[in-house]
Amino acid sequence: MMFDVSIITDRVEPILHGLLVTFQTWFAGVLIGLVLGLGIAVLQLFGGRWLRIPLRMFIEVIRATPFLVLLFLLYYGGPEFGLSLEPITAGILGMGVYGSVYFAEIFRGGFQSVPKGHVEAAECLGMGRWQCIWRVQLPQMLVIILPALVNMITILCKETAVLSIITIPELTMVLTGIGSETFAFVETLLVLCIGYLILIELSSRLGLWLERRVGRFLVRS
């Protein structure tokens, strides 16, 4: 087995483009997932029983379903309920929905970790529910939930590889494409592995740095 560097160096541009698509889908998916997840958690906590039960069911169903199956449902099944999406849109939406239920569970735990009295204090000072969530509960629980959030974000990074199956030209799709074109599977797959390891390592480093920054002034005595 020889390692032919030119296989990679000759195709830097498409590979970088694949990396860009990976980044795009990852960030957009994470963003949608965080917003949806926060929304689900807030509605679960404050929305009463008629919202809590359907939301709980939604969470359980999505958590039980493989990401790939969710993608198939959105991308191939979507047109049947009037949702014809480009692969990349379906991919981002799928990432968002898939991530949202995990983020929701993390946020829910975070809300429960904030002492009830801190919310009561805000109430007594006349702060609205949203002000209380945004100014008192979220910043406080961030320290506690940040590791779990970062972990989920790195999991979603790895899930972007699955997007290749619905023909989104991200890193995995581009490199396996080069592999089958040139039969240079060793080179392409190794580069692919190293690429993901770097991405994962960078994001967990970034997470640690954030944890230190946020934790600095929040260390409880």
């Binding site: 009561e120 204090a121 007594c124 006349g126 929040l218 409880r220």
Partner: peptide, 15 residues
Amino acid sequence: SSLGMVFQQFNLWPH
């Protein structure tokens, strides 16, 4: 708005 409350556990916001 015309009352102020002080708690046993202070309930200052730690952040």
